[in-house]
Design a protein around this nucleic acid. Structure first.
Length: 315
DNA sequence: TGTCCACGTCT
DNA sequence: AAGACGTGGAC
C-alpha cells in the first residue's frame, strides 16, 4: 500500500531539519514553507535558524518592520516573499487558520503552501503538490501529459492516508529530494519501486515531461560607486514593488538590451528571466544622485541583494 | 560555459 | 494565462 510503504520509509530516512519538531509548531511550518518556495533545504537552514533565533514566536515577528525582515532575508531571493511574510505575520499573530481554504487566503500562501501547512502543522488531509511531488508521482504513474502538475494533484488525493497526513506529505517530498532525484534517481532504495511506472519502462528521467525553457535575454547597465572623502558610499532604496522591491542599491543607468562600453570592473548576474551585465564605475560627482551615505562597515545593516553585494565587493 | 533544480505565487 | 520574480550549487 502506497502510504504505508512511504511512511515506513520516511520514519527511517527523514532528515532532522530545524523546522521538523515534535509537537509541530505552526509558526515553524509556515516560515519554513515560505522560505522553501523555489529554494533548496541547504540554502534555507541558516536563514531559518537566524529568523527563529531573532524572532522566536509569530508575535515577535509580527512586531518587526519590513526593513528588519529584509535585512535578514537578504540573499535568499524572491523578495516579495519577505514583503508577504511581514504582512502575513501580523495576521497570523491574531489568528492562525487551520484549514487549507483559509490558509490560501493569506498573502504569499498559494495552493501548494496552504496544503503543506494544513497537513504538516495540523494533520489535515490536503494534497500538497510541489516540484518534488510532481516528479515522484509523474514517474510513479508514468504521466505523459506536458506540465503534469494538475494530473498529479488528482492522483494524489485518493492516496492521502487518514492518519499522519503531515508525515505523508513530508515523506513524499523527502523521497523526491533524496531518492527520486531529477537526475540519477536511486531506484534500488525506493519504497515505491515495485509499482513505479517509469521504473517498469526504465525511463525514469523521461518524467516529468516538461515544456522546453526559453533562452534568457541579456540586459546591460552601468553602476556608479559614489564615495565621499570619509569613505561613505551612496545607497538608495528601490521602489517597494517589482524587481528587488524594497532592497537597497547603488545608482545605475536603466537596464536595457544595449551593451555598454567597458570602463570599469565587470559583474555578471542572472535573474529569473534575464542575465545582467554590469559595468561598475567610480563617479566623481558625489552630488549626482540622491540617497543615504553608508560607511563600508555599516553595509551589513542594510538589505542588499546579491547583485549589489557583487558590485560592492571590495568597497 | 550553460542548464537545471525550482510548480510557487502574484498579477 | 502567461510573464515577473533570485539565488547558488550540481553537473
Amino acid at each position: 500500500m502506497f502510504s504505508n510503504a512511504l511512511l515506513a520509509w520516511y520514519d527511517k530516512n527523514k532528515r532532522h531539519l530545524p523546522w521538523r519538531i515534535s509537537p509541530s509548531n505552526p509558526y515553524y511550518t509556515w516560515l519554513s514553507e515560505i522560505m522553501l518556495q523555489q529554494t533548496t533545504v541547504v540554502t534555507v537552514i541558516p536563514y531559518f535558524d537566524k529568523f527563529v533565533e531573532k524572532w522566536p514566536t509569530i508575535q515577535c515577528l509580527a512586531a518587526a518592520s519590513l526593513d528588519e525582515i529584509l535585512v535578514e532575508w537578504q540573499g535568499l531571493g524572491y523578495y516579495s516573499r519577505a514583503r508577504n511574510l511581514c504582512q502575513c505575520a501580523k495576521l497570523l499573530a491574531e489568528h492562525f487558520p487551520v484549514t487549507e481554504e483559509e490558509l490560501s487566503k493569506l498573502p504569499g500562501v498559494g495552493p501548494y503552501t496552504a496544503a503543506a501547512i494544513a497537513s504538516i502543522a495540523f494533520g489535515q488531509k490536503a494534497a500538497a503538490v510541489d516540484g518534488n511531488v510532481v516528479r515522484v508521482l509523474s514517474r510513479y504513474f508514468a504521466i505523459t501529459t506536458v506540465n503534469p502538475a494538475k494530473d498529479v494533484k488528482e492522483k494524489l488525493l485518493p492516496l492521502l492516508p487518514e492518519k499522519r497526513c503531515g508525515d505523508f506529505t513530508q515523506g513524499l517530498m523527502e523521497l523526491g529530494a533524496l531518492i527520486c532525484r531529477p537526475k540519477s534517481p536511486l531506484c534500488s532504495a525506493c519504497p515505491l519501486q515495485q509499482d513505479c511506472g517509469a521504473y517498469a519502462l526504465r525511463k525514469m528521467e523521461d518524467f516529468p515531461q516538461m515544456a522546453p525553457k526559453q533562452k534568457l535575454p541579456t540586459r546591460y547597465t552601468t553602476a556608479f560607486i559614489l564615495k565621499r572623502d570619509d569613505g561613505a558610499i551612496l545607497l538608495r532604496k528601490r521602489p517597494p514593488q517589482g524587481l528587488l522591491g524594497g532592497m537597497m542599491e547603488v545608482p545605475t543607468t536603466p537596464w536595457e538590451e544595449i551593451p555598454h562600453e567597458k570602463k570599469g570592473r565587470r559583474v555578471r548576474h542572472t535573474f529569473t528571466h534575464f542575465h545582467l551585465e554590469v559595468d561598475v564605475c567610480p563617479h566623481k560627482d558625489i552630488r549626482a544622485f540622491e540617497g543615504i551615505w553608508v560607511m563600508p562597515q555599516d553595509l551589513k545593516k542594510y538589505a542588499l541583494p546579491t547583485l549589489m553585494k557583487k558590485i560592492l565587493k571590495g568597497e
